[in-house]
Amino acid sequence: MPTEQTLLDATRVIVDIQRQRGIDLPTDGELYRFDANHPDTNGMIDYFIRPLSGVRSEVGRQEWHEFRQMQTMSFRAKPAGVVESALGEGTLNLVSDCERAVSVSGKDIKFTVTSPYMLARTLLDKYYGDFDTLLTALAEVLATQVRELDCACLQIDEANIPGNPQDGPRAAEAINIVLDAFGGEKAVHFCFGNYGGQVIQKGNWGALVDFLNMLRCDHLVLELQHRPKVDLEALREVTSDIVLGIGVIDVKVNPVETPDDVAASIETAAKMLGAGRIGWVHPDCGFWMLQRSVVDRKIEALVQGRDKYLGLT
């Protein structure tokens, strides 16, 4: 288990690796929520749910059964918690966690927070009796915290809605509550899940365009390298008010892309989407499931491929 000092040192390393490679907007590697008990999701759910007041994280056998009957998440059999009273921030402290990263990296970083919709889908509700009310309450708790974050960019991460496009309007409303509370660059990341290289959610970007257009964000961070080409075509319908971020590195496989591969992916996307639509290139999702030796080379290829496309090399 990391000490505060080793966590600070690891954050320095993670940010510096990205900056040395030429990444414009690095992250802290989400080390702020590192959880040895949940390495498969890097604390993406439990870090946010466990500290909240109004939620009990000790879950009994019958509650496991009730959650399974809800069929909200086919890949999760146990709820992250049981909602027993009005939600509050409890001991969740995103502000302190962001400050830790900023203290060693400066403010020019991206800080990531799991979407309220994805979090709400993991809960067994025994209090609100209505999913939308639960969702709004959760979004407002997160908004209260992100309002005080002092960093360049906030990224909301959502990996569940791609498989549930019918919930787009309610998810967008909740995500927007969180986005509206932040004063800097606002990004939303979507992927179809990644557990040991496996896609979790079925669906396509075409079914999500209306939902994407509802978001009050500055740019999107989208999984595309591991997706069929038809998904790229669908993004032509995304409003020009939102800058597109294009996944050009596949995080579900070990083979390392070459700079030529990356440049070709950017060129294909630019031709498909039109001039000025692409503002960012990035990996499809997080790198945490890949070996460090693979990750370092993929980051290097990402930047070299971008520069090759831009004619900088």
Rank of each mutant, 00 (worst) to 15 (best):
E66Y: 10
L31C: 13
R76M: 15
R147F: 04
N160P: 00
L119N: 04
R21C: 01
T313V: 11
E257T: 02
E30I: 01
D296G: 00
E223N: 10
F190H: 15
A181V: 01
A207T: 14
M214C: 05
D9R: 10
R33C: 04
I156P: 07
M272G: 10
M118R: 13
I299Q: 05
V82E: 13
D250Y: 01
V303L: 02
D260H: 10
S53T: 15
L134W: 10
L119I: 14
P255A: 04
V146G: 07
P26A: 11
L310D: 09
G274Q: 07
E66I: 04
L310F: 07
I49C: 08
W288C: 06
Y309S: 04
G279R: 07
V295L: 06
D231Q: 12
G43W: 09
D108S: 08
R147A: 13
G196C: 11
K308L: 13
E63D: 15
G54E: 09
L310H: 05
L312W: 10
D125Q: 10
E223A: 12
N204K: 04
R12K: 12
I45V: 14
I14N: 13
S105L: 00
L215A: 09
Y127A: 11
Q225Y: 01
V209G: 14
A269N: 03
V243S: 13
V262Q: 06
N194Q: 04
D108H: 04
D9C: 03
E158R: 05
T122C: 08
E300D: 12
M73E: 12
E158L: 05
G311C: 13
D132L: 09
V102L: 14
D180G: 12
T11N: 00
T41D: 06
Y47W: 15
I177D: 02
Q201T: 11
A234K: 03
L232G: 11
D157A: 15
I23A: 00
V188I: 15
A174I: 01
V209S: 13
R216G: 10
I109H: 04
M289W: 09
T133F: 08
F48Y: 15
G247I: 00
R76D: 13
I278N: 05
R56S: 08
L222A: 01
A181F: 06
P255E: 15
H282Q: 12
D9F: 08
Q166D: 05
L154C: 11
V55H: 10
N254C: 05
G206I: 03
D24R: 04
F48L: 00
V248S: 02
H219V: 08
G193R: 01
V281S: 14
L232I: 08
V95Y: 13
G81D: 14
K202Q: 11
V238R: 09
R306S: 09
Q20M: 01
F75P: 06
A171M: 02
L25V: 08
I200K: 14
D130P: 03
V256E: 00
A275Q: 14
G29Q: 09
I17T: 03
A139I: 11
A152H: 13
D261E: 04
L235K: 04
Y128T: 14
K110P: 15
S74E: 15
L31K: 06
A171C: 09
D125N: 11
T136I: 12
S105H: 00
E185S: 08
R61N: 11
